[in-house]
Design a binder for these strands. Structure first.
Lengths: 133, 133
DNA sequence: CTGCGTGCAAATAGTTTGCAGTTCA
DNA sequence: TGAACTGCAAACTATTTGCACGCAG
């Protein structure tokens, strides 16, 4: 029964819809994509509200945020385990990869330089076997 | 004598000014900042030209590009070898880090999935010691 | 000469904000 | 009831593009 965002926030239909969608997807999407998906499924939510809700969720630590090489924001429900993507340059096929070693490496490097509150982005690009033939 | 960008490019005053500034600075700046600096020193260069020149330089491998968590592009005259960045979320201080282990790891993972022609992006964000106080 | 380069102005793209009306607690 | 929320439209920011003119080679 707890669809709510923790804190002094109100439990509105719109927010529930955004959260429900994020739970279903579990993968990175732009606010615009999320908004489009919501409309497709008939949910009546404004783009502005999607942005504001994602902002709230991020502040509350409920979602992860990254950025595309092109600069757009990407959000994803977090809590599910952290992973990265291996993406094909020509067909966009995506493989999820996990790299505990890399996570540890980034933590260590950052700590060595006195940085705290560490996060990172890692994307791998290549040509998949089907496309390289 | 070789202020020029390699390739079929022309050696104009504007391009020389941009390159000269980049050489002086050696640290990450946004196109807007670079443009402002050029005007301050009396160089007559349009913002458009700064953007276009940076694009060219990036294609030519003469500059490094990253992105602020806020989304803006950052450019810097580039050191040759491949490296990644550890960037402070609040003051944008940047540390170059090298990670042979990560390079190898990405190669291996990608190869395991049948991908070829591999490249990757890795950025580490955190709060530097000065800002976390 | 010839066409790449330049810079203004206008167009884009993504995101944020003002504000009047709506809704949850 | 009343503060928080919503959504439209307009504002904003960073970046790109159209186009007429200018300059390098």
């Amino acid at each position: 029964m707890n669809d709510m965002i923790s804190g002094a926030t109100r439990n509105t239909r719109q927010r529930s819809e955004v959260l429900a969608l994020l739970d279903e997807i579990a993968d990175f999407r732009t606010p615009q994509q999320l908004h489009a998906l919501l409309r497709q499924r008939g949910a009546q939510v404004g783009l502005t509200t999607v942005y504001r809700t994602l902002q709230l969720l991020q502040d509350a630590g409920e979602v992860d945020a990254t950025r595309l090489p092109g600069g757009e924001q990407l959000y994803r429900r977090c809590g599910a385990s952290h992973h990265h993507h291996l993406v094909c340059r020509s067909c966009n096929a995506t493989v999820e990869v996990r790299g505990p070693a890399v996570e540890r490496w980034t933590e260590r490097i950052a700590a060595e330089h006195g940085f705290t509150d560490i996060g990172h982005t890692l994307e791998i690009f290549g040509t998949c076997s089907r496309c390289s033939r």
